[in-house]
Simulated scan of single mutants.
Amino acid sequence: MFMCICSDGTYATTCPDNTKQGSKARLEAGLIGSLGGAFLLSMAFLIFFKLRRNYNAQENIEKLLEQYGSLAPRRYKYSELMKITQSFRDKLGKGGFGTVYKGKQPDGCMVAVKVLHNSTNNGEEFLNEVVSIGRTSHVNVVTLLGFCIEGSKRALVYEYMSNRSLDMYIYSENPKTVLGWEKLYNIAIGIARGLEYLHRGCSTHIVHFDIKPQNILLDDDFCPKIADFGLAKLCPPKESVLSSMVDMRGTIGFIAPEVFSRGFGVVSTKSDVYSYGMMVLEMVGGRKNMKPNVGNPSEVYFPHWIYDRVAGGGEIESCDVTNETEEIARKMVLVGFWCTQTIPANRPSMGRVVEMLERSLSELELPPKPSLQSVDAISVQSMGITVPLSNSEPSDGLR
């Protein structure tokens, strides 16, 4: 039988209203306390596992950096970076992985400090930059001067590029007036040499995966330097194919077809070649190859538009080309066409690209345009275009 203990210490089979209310209040308070305790316990577990994960990530980074020994870039304290950048006062730009600030070291040397976003993850983008750029030394690859890792705070210190990035010039109102065709041509060759070095000149080959005008920095003399290695992947020695890559990486408009669909071929250094070719075509045309608000897909895909003009013998009028600069413009366009061939095997290596750029226009041939009658084609919804498989025979682009 149910018995109630009343407030006066007596027992009864039924409880007065005030006793029921008191019991109900105590029950509610108990439930609230239990739920609150469970919530605090859950939060404690989450904080613990997050701290443990951050600790493990930092421990892995520390172990990897130890392997460099004396060859590792300089390690900065976060307080040093605060002083160098005057509390991150002068922002140079912002990208997918971090914000870049202008800084000045005590010796007067100007630097660019990139503070990484979302630095509480496993640190992949941080490791990519430190490991990949730390292995390089080339006039057309930006120099990593140092790094900072303090808990969740991670930053990279680079040489300062006074003329910022290439996109500031080629997308301006009069890009050819600012740079001139000779300088634009030299920039294209410099980028090609930098990529050739990354693909073949390093002890471990590097695929950048994000070649675009925003990631090409220009120094005082407009010498181009490849930057932002947050998406880079390292290839095994003497290899150029990435068999273990499972994620799509890059920027829409510059991603090679095989990166988003393995039906086009394997992902390799040729994926960078495609991005380079798309960038060169934008350098010539002075317009972005993707314009989301344009209704007609044929007007959106810039390579097809300019291919029809060149194949038909027309002038590249919209590109401010004169008789004196016609050969430079056409040479860059032809190289861009070869680099953006749909099938990776049909694209030249970056070493071949450098050779093509240094030859005369008469030694270059027009590559085939991707055929709309190919047996297999896919619709790339995210890019707003249809990219067909090409049945053309491989060629090196030279006559």
Rank of each mutant, 00 (worst) to 15 (best):
Y276K: 02
N186I: 00
R200A: 13
P297H: 03
K369S: 07
G250A: 13
K225I: 08
Y68Q: 13
T322Y: 08
D167T: 04
P348E: 12
L218H: 05
F337C: 03
Y11K: 07
L334F: 15
I187S: 04
N118A: 11
S244I: 02
R352L: 06
G265Q: 10
N163E: 12
P344R: 09
N128M: 08
R262C: 07
A232N: 05
R164V: 00
R352Q: 14
D107L: 05
N186Y: 03
N391L: 13
T13P: 07
R330A: 03
A72Q: 12
L92S: 02
S275C: 02
L231E: 08
P297C: 04
R399M: 11
R89V: 02
N174S: 14
P344I: 02
F222S: 02
L195Q: 04
G194A: 04
R75L: 09
G108C: 12
G37Q: 08
D220E: 15
R26P: 01
M283V: 13
N174C: 09
I385Y: 13
T136R: 08
S119C: 07
G108K: 05
S79C: 03
K24L: 14
A155T: 09
V266C: 09
P213A: 00
K212H: 06
Q373K: 11
M248D: 09
N118P: 00
F97L: 06
D228W: 12
Q214A: 01
P16M: 11
T120F: 07
S119A: 15
N293F: 04
G253Y: 01
I170A: 02
V266Q: 11
P257Q: 05
G9D: 06
V310L: 14
P303Y: 01
S34A: 15
T13I: 10
M168Q: 15
E28P: 00
K114N: 01
G36P: 05
D247E: 14
D376R: 06
S23R: 14
I226D: 02
L65P: 01
E324V: 03
K153I: 10
